[in-house]
Design a protein around this nucleic acid. Structure first.
Length: 211
DNA sequence: TTCCCGTTCT
DNA sequence: AGAACAGGAA
């Protein structure tokens, strides 16, 4: 946890902001963000939007809608996202948990972030990345989401740290607001999709980065 | 490590 | 036809 590591993180954040500027990802309701967070696991976002609109048309794109719907209906509607049998069960498990523990999404808003995170992690199908996405994008908490892209970029930048440590580093460097976390995370994903995914390592300013 | 699985791009 | 995709469980 040296100061140089923190400054490296800051330099990455600043460099990506210079490259992409203001970039806001998804203004959705809390409930749709929660559903989308499950559906997007190992799946392209474009396919998630298809599934979300199908759920909306069926009138079940909500916690209570998912909770009440037959498993087969959910499976059919979310089919475009892949892993539809597993994800349908994860969605109902999450909906049931929210209703049972908090009486609905509104009941979550007063719960401290760490408590809420632990609660979400107890749901089958909600791992750390999904839980943090829900907290940041769905509930407006100042939580930074570490995903495979972020981890890879940091590794290429010479920052030798695991996901746990990276999360703490980003949150200590960034302003303590959900918008700051959202925007920076979006930058990392955007960069990785543009360069890492297309293997443009020769054009990557982050590789062998030492700031 | 392997499985879950449809869609899109190569 | 093959790989890759906003992961997580067993």
């Amino acid at each position: 946890m040296s100061a140089s590591v923190s400054s490296s993180i800051s330099a990455l954040i600043d460099g990506l902001f210079e490259q992409y500027g203001p970039l806001i990802w998804w203004k959705g309701s809390t409930e749709e963000v929660m559903i989308g967070a499950i559906l997007t696991q190992q799946t392209r976002w474009e396919n998630v939007e298809v599934a979300l609109s199908r759920l909306r048309q069926a009138g079940i794109c909500s916690i209570r809608g998912i909770f009440a719907a037959p498993m087969e209906e959910i499976e059919a509607l979310i089919r475009p996202t892949g892993f539809f049998r597993v994800k349908a069960r994860r969605l109902q498990g999450l909906a049931a948990h929210v209703i049972r523990e908090f009486g609905g999404v509104e009941g979550m808003r007063t719960v401290p972030t760490e408590d809420l995170r632990e609660s979400l992690l107890s749901v089958k199908g909600v791992g750390e990345e999904t839980a943090d996405s829900i907290l940041c994008y769905g509930l407006g908490r100042a939580v930074f989401v570490i995903d495979a892209y972020t981890e890879r970029i940091c590794w290429c930048a010479g920052i030798d740290a695991g996901r746990r440590e990276l999360k703490g580093l980003f949150e200590s460097v960034l302003p303590e607001t959900a918008d700051a976390c959202r925007q920076s995370h979006a930058h990392f994903v955007e960069y990785a999709k543009g360069y890492c995914g297309k293997k443009r390592c020769d054009e990557c300013w982050i590789r062998n980065f030492d700031g």
